[in-house]
Design a protein around this nucleic acid. Structure first.
Lengths: 146, 146
DNA sequence: CTGAGTGCAAACGCTTTGCAGACAG
DNA sequence: CTGTCTGCAAAGCGTTTGCACTCAG
């Protein structure tokens, strides 16, 4: 399960772009992680198998896939993290544990009320996509426990 | 109105720190802006009057005041912005217009419901301090209009 | 063939740091 | 005096960019 469900060549062709092995490799690697990766991590992974692939290519590919809507990004601790965009195209946000670094997803719906409130009270059309919230996860002392 | 209302020397003394002219100048400059400034802007301002003051001193002073709770920071577009911490010590968040760059404040209370929900549903103790949300302000097409 | 994409390497912007000298206390 | 703080300069980090070459179409 992954980008196989997506007609990549067609999407590329439609925009006059090319499907290069590098892009496939990078996308595969991102899928393989199954979660969030920093560019550095993704590069390590890719570079381990294909030493010829450059860091800048990873950046460019990620950026490119982002434009295609295949990949989405967020900011965690000053560095960008990437992940395969969810199929349902629903916005989602990230909870990053300041302690263990774990990243959890929250469906965008949880934020609808907030967005509505910001719009009503401040006339501010919040763009919550890629929003990242830091804190402590359950394991690290958040939530119910101490 | 500003840091005059705060017994700076005493606060410093209590921690074994010093009140240097540089720190006063930097704090004054921050007050003078009355809002959010990037380090670059603040440095410009300070440096215009006191060319001898170094960028690193601005960083260090800001960091220092942050620890004292006099100054708080947020992240806007990859760069840190600083402002005088509100007297009531209430958490507040920032709405940054992606269009005009305007920054608005939102009292932390607006986010309490969200934090509660994250805690209840995910066991995640969200630290919303310094949270920055981007979007479009009323003037730039947000809110009620299109 | 053609030009989108690549690898290389250097530059970028923001921030941090090591150091020796300076000055607040 | 003491040692906190400063200015300088250089490094650090993640990221972006210019260039000539390469390969997908």
């Amino acid at each position: 399960m992954s980008h196989d469900t997506f007609d990549l060549p067609a999407a590329l062709r439609a925009r006059g772009h090319r499907l290069t092995p590098q892009r496939q490799i990078i996308l595969d690697a991102l899928c393989a992680t199954g979660g969030h990766v920093t560019v550095a991590e993704l590069y390590e992974r890719v570079h381990a198998d294909f030493p010829a692939i450059d860091r800048s290519t990873v950046y460019r590919a990620l950026d490119f896939f982002g434009e295609l809507g295949l990949v989405c990004s967020a900011e965690v601790g000053g560095a960008a993290v990437y992940e395969i965009a969810p199929r349902d195209a629903s916005a989602h946000h990230h909870l990053v544990c300041a302690d263990c670094g774990a990243v959890a997803h929250v469906p965008g719906a949880a934020f609808d009320a907030l967005a509505a409130r910001l719009a009503a009270d401040y006339g501010f059309a919040a763009d919550l996509s890629g929003l990242t919230i830091s804190g402590r996860c359950r394991e690290c002392g958040g939530g119910a426990g101490a």
